[in-house]
Amino acid sequence: MRTFSSIIIFIIALLLFSSCEKTILEMPSKSNTHVFEAFWKGIDERYAYFELKNINWDSLHTHYGDIITNEMTDEALFDTLSVLIDLLHDGHSGIKSSFDMHKNTGFYMCGPENVSERLIVDNYSKGWGMQIGNLRHFALCNNDIAYIYYGNFSDLVSDYDIDYLVNKYKNTKGIIFDIRSNYGGSAENIFRLTKRFAQDKTHLYNNRFKNGPGHADFSDFTETCIEPAQTTYKGKVCVLTNRKVYSAASIFTLSMKQLPSVTIVGDTTGGGLGMPVGFELPNEWQVYCAGTQIISVDGENLELGVPPDVQVNMTDDDIANGIDTIIEKAIEIINEQSE
């Protein structure tokens, strides 16, 4: 009995005096200066483009560290950290509190709009057109050319949807795949779409991740390749882009650029090839910034934008006459290449 009692007492002692939970639930300081330090350090150790963008993050710490006081209001602190976010000039950076959310949207303003949904509806689809899943589509030029619009990579494209379109338009000369003003979303859709236009195994790009706190701490580059899908489109393809093509949509543009049957038409994309990664501050605000790098097969870092093969901007005269200059150029390219 004495043995058993000893064991029970030992277990109870463990339960009562164990300090495990105390060490787990240890709270960091939530003072403004600690929050600023956590913010600065979090970005310092994660952000992947200090060198490319020539940002001296240390000097910003010196400057803004002097401004931060523990007496500042939450709003003032948030605004100050938002300024630092803006200085990254990166659409994949932002900060969120319980009362505000700030995103860096610099890539919006780098070029003309270069798309008008109303113009397409009025003069090309002459209405809504057809839609399967999240892909809108219609035929142009006496059914010789198909037009597909994909507006958001966050919206899933299923194998069924894209196979349906590839089959429906298999006898056309070409497809215009319009992703203008597509801000990105899930990388999964990149591969599902791209492999429908590839005829061979294709090397799309190389990527690497931050793997340590130093600005130059990166993993080795990993090659990203795709195999063609069972059902593929054999005709010509023009991908239409503008500056609001960002993130996964930019990666898609870069991927499609590697395919011989594809021509990128329009404006340079907004870039944003680095994947955003996040962290939390001691006051529970959430911050994110780009933590990975993608370079093209040729070794170019296209974080600031993937250039088109054929640069075209919409002209005011064309817009006034109900003409989408970029669609017209794509039609011209497909017709030329199909001759």
Binding site: K195, F209, K210, T224, C225, G291, T292, I294
Partner: peptide
């Protein structure tokens, strides 16, 4: 998880 907390396969087809 690795340093960033993103799987190394995140930007490949077989994520």
């Amino acid at each position: 998880p690795n340093y960033l907390g993103i799987s190394k396969t995140a930007l490949t087809e077989n994520r």
